[in-house]
Amino acid sequence: METLERYRPVIDDFEAFLGACRRPLPSAVRVNPIKASVGEVTAAFDEAGVGWEQAAWNDRVMTVDTDRPGNTWPYFHGWVHGQEVVSSLPATVLDPDPGERVWDAAAAPGSKTTHLAALMDDRGLLVANDSNLGRLSALRSNAERLGVTNVAVTNRDARNFSLKPFGGEPFDRALVDAPCSCEGTIRKNPDALDEWDLRHVRGVAGVQKGILRRAVQATREGGTVVYSTCTFAPEENEGVLDHVLGEEDCRLVETGLEVECAPGVTEWEGEEYDESVRKAARIYPQFRDTGGFFVAKLEVTA
């Protein structure tokens, strides 16, 4: 928890923040409309005596009263995917339409990929990429269990991803759910901060910048790119946005989320970031009893 002290200056009600970080996280699932309706899922949980509660902002996202949602019939049938509540935010913000071409740059094990596929009605082209082959096999089994057929899987470093296998055409939308220091998962993994190290934060920020730049380049003019992490560190969030705003043709736009959030920070340890990073959303655990999360939406301008 000491690591989190560095955020005291930017988080209001810091004691509530620390208190929430110490509490375990409720189990949650996302309903998969490719295979079932919300009514079927809730009826199946009722039959099994598993309690559930829908999120206020999305009736397909629910917390469930079991430690092992993986051991329920709705899970076996791919009617639900076990997924933290905040993990449903990036695809909601990217908001792809059926028939579009969408790139998920750091996709494994596929929680957001499968959510994107559902929002696309399993139509169009969804390219799920990850540099880690082992994690890609988890992505493939998740996508198959959830009945997804519109996903093409690639194993590349997203920083120099090639559009060649996809006709050389840019994407309509891209998601960068970046590798990060994962501070926001502390409620799920109490040892998430054991290996925390500022050099690692700076190193991973370099990778994040590279992936986000490539995502902006690979997206058509007028298209949308969403950047998300599960960390609080401004170096990995607003700092990355600030860098990419300076290097690539893009601008920040509002996320449109109807969840409680704080704006992006514009000053951090002597650095100043572009004012527009305030449009990003910081979700702290004390707001709605979730994990911590960061999400920003960019429009590609050329």
Partner: peptide, 14 residues
């Protein structure tokens, strides 16, 4: 369900 040119050398397709 997507469109790509055949053949394609990638890790997975649908």
């Amino acid at each position: 369900a997507g469109e790509v040119d055949s053949p394609v050398r990638i890790e997975g397709l649908g």
